[in-house]
Design a protein around this nucleic acid. Sequence first.
DNA 1: CAATCAAGCGGACCGTGGTCCGTTTAAAGT
DNA 2: ACTTTAAACGGACCACGGTCCGCTTGATTG
Lengths: 217, 217
Amino acid sequence: MTGPDTPAPRLPEPGGTRTNLPLAPTDEPPQLRADAARNRTLLLDAASRLLSGCGAAELTMESVAAAAGVGKGTVFRRFGDRAGLLLALLDHREKQLQAAFLSGPPPLGPDASAAERLHAFGPAVLRHERDHHPLILASRTDALRHYAVPAFHLRLNHLALLLRQAGVPGDPEPLAHTLLGSIDTALVHHLTVERGMPLERLEEAWHHLVTRLGATA
Amino acid sequence: MTGPDTPAPRLPEPGGTRTNLPLAPTDEPPQLRADAARNRTLLLDAASRLLSGCGAAELTMESVAAAAGVGKGTVFRRFGDRAGLLLALLDHREKQLQAAFLSGPPPLGPDASAAERLHAFGPAVLRHERDHHPLILASRTDALRHYAVPAFHLRLNHLALLLRQAGVPGDPEPLAHTLLGSIDTALVHHLTVERGMPLERLEEAWHHLVTRLGATA
DNA sequence: CAATCAAGCGGACCGTGGTCCGTTTAAAGT
DNA sequence: ACTTTAAACGGACCACGGTCCGCTTGATTG
């Protein structure tokens, strides 16, 4: 749901003499060929199998390819690069979180007030990230790539929406970025693991921040 | 001022029969040998020369070594890794900013109220980062390394101090991280360059944030 | 000035991420 | 079934970051 993998598969550019548009309704579900789809899951399975036996740092592209019984080129064709593979691995776990705040029960889901959802959002993300930080951290090689990840966008838009709904004053987009930044995986890992700060303290800081910004709806 | 380079030069472990402690007062100014110091500046010069002729992405360790007329091993010995070299390059430019908010004129320097300094801090960093983002971004390979950089610590402590002095309520440390995150280079680059947001809008967001958090002193 | 020694040096060497390109194959037409 | 075509495949290949280790050299001590 967060998005397909193929990074830039040189789209066939539908500009020419388009006789029939084959009911592709909104945008791209890129629809892999049968063998490609099979290899994709083969690779994902192999990767998570290997990953459960060693740290993410030791996971090499070649080993994944070998474990899946395909060539190295196939891995790169499918996932673009190492980060792409890791992100794809993450994607599945991410969907659970997304479901929780998009359609789950209150206080996270839509049956609570915007302010309540705002307050609940921080701890939910915090815990999610605590559980998956090795992979998340390993997927962060490029400082900017992060902002292009669909999952990130989803969180951002969700937050911006809640901010508006809750009547929080100020420019929603930078504000949403700031809030999201305050619970970023790297920061949280640094503060909790390296500096020994308890997670509860960060949750309190989140609540303080949200309150202070004026979530009153 | 921000710190020396040598990453972990296997310290000689002073635990043994320590006859005289040779007046090393607080901590390490590691004091390079003459040839090492010469090579260090040779390398830094070579690097920034190369850098002014191409993007940071094209700067390879081998080319720097060659341009400086030393072996590749020397570069790694001195700077630890690529990020270390880039950080060292950045260090000089960083000092100017540090001087400005540590001892410069108001509203950034110490002759202004804490709240005024808080407000001035954001735009100052924002502009500094706008000028140097290619290098900064290139130095960010590891998601966590960032938090260990002396320059980062300095900013963080400075902010936390100002927050306390200005009587801002809430846990200062997470708050300082949040504020710093809201003007992080990667984020700013994303918002301004990739999404076309004007820098002024980010400055306003900063002022709004600081105000909203309650800088009233 | 000679001896000692740790700091510095250099470049061969290695592993890994990423690319390239000739070959194979699933799928859509006829 | 046969042709056609573009997607997919695979593994040789390359470049770069980082390590290793034997040699050199600046500093220090007597």
